[in-house]
């Protein structure tokens, strides 16, 4: 078991024939992901990486029966691509694109919510169920099939956590990069709920960063509902207030969304909060051992 994606997920790539789309579709195919086609308006009828190219997502879904779309479309056109995927009837959209204007995302988020479509991202590394489906831009080889669920707003910090967990001899059920933007499809809480229901996920690593209050909300829900051990880390304790730290959503404003504040709430909610990002793997391993006793 796993969450969101597995070996049966059928994937189409929006922005398939572009540089990023091509590179990562190749990597995904090499990992064994079922990439069944792609969409580039105006290039319908072509073959690319051995797979059919369609003009519209609707056509691609009708023909290939894809249930997942991954988006590599440039930021100016990405919100439109998200809405097209939702309209075409896919169950899951993973939007990798970074730099989508907030105004566009307000509309796109409203559109997909109305249609009940789940989205991961944007501005995220994607989702991977090790050994089954790599749906994103993460390096596949650091992952190992196993029972730790990992979620994070960041890309490389997620890889760091994955690597540490793998080096503890553990593996991952699914790893989800939820994205660093102020408006994202799925929050920490949304993914925590899925991990909690997944019998194959025995422990959870939840990584957050400064800005917003998603981590606090997830932590409060964890306190009431989750018995699996949860290890937490918040990046940005040393970030100055009022400055955007790379991610559009990573900003402490009006004294709200600080790392210390988030860590305090997470501790109160029974999460194993680590001070140093270097301790994520070891603390998870210990927590799992303690839970098994």
């Amino acid at each position: 078991m796993s969450i969101l994606v597995n070996k049966d997920s059928k994937v189409i790539v929006q922005g398939f024939t572009g540089k990023e789309g091509t590179f990562h579709a190749e990597q995904m195919l090499a990992y064994g992901t079922q990439v069944v086609g792609g969409v580039t308006p105006g290039k319908g009828g072509m073959k690319h990486l051995g797979q059919p190219v369609f003009n519209t997502v609707y056509e691609a879904v009708q023909t290939t029966k894809a249930n997942v779309s991954i988006i590599f479309v440039p930021p100016a056109f990405a919100a439109d691509a998200i809405m097209e995927a939702a309209d075409a009837g896919v169950e899951l959209i993973v939007a990798i694109t970074e730099g989508i204007p907030v105004k566009d995302m307000i509309y796109a988020k409203h559109y997909i919510d109305e249609r009940g479509v789940r989205m991961i991202g944007p501005n995220c590394p994607g989702v991977i169920t090790p050994g089954e489906c790599k749906l994103g831009i993460m390096p596949g080889f650091i992952h190992n099939p196993g029972h730790v669920g990992i979620l994070s707003r960041s890309g490389t910090l997620t890889y760091e956590a994955v690597d540490q967990v793998t080096k503890q001899g553990l593996g991952q059920s699914t790893c989800v990069g939820i994205g660093g933007d102020p408006i994202i499809g799925s929050t920490h809480l949304d993914i925590i709920k899925l991990f909690n229901e997944d019998p194959d996920t025995h422990g959870i690593v939840m990584i957050g960063e400064i800005g917003g209050s998603n981590e606090e909300k997830a932590a409060e829900w964890i306190a009431d509902h989750v018995t699996k051990p949860v290890v937490g880390f918040i990046a940005g304790r040393t970030a100055p207030p009022g400055r955007r730290m790379g991610h559009a959503g990573a900003i402490v404003s009006g004294g709200k969304g600080t790392a210390d504040g988030k860590m305090a709430v997470m501790r109160e909610c029974g999460i194993h909060v680590v001070e140093s990002p270097a301790e994520i793997g070891t603390v998870m391993a210990e927590a799992l051992r303690a839970a098994a006793v």
Partner: peptide, 21 residues
């Protein structure tokens, strides 16, 4: 650092090591 999240985490780690980013 590559990546905003890891960059912030690295800054935090520098502080824990006795330095200041």
């Amino acid at each position: 650092v590559n990546g905003a999240g890891l960059a912030m985490a690295t800054m935090d780690m520098i502080k824990l090591s006795g330095g200041e980013p």
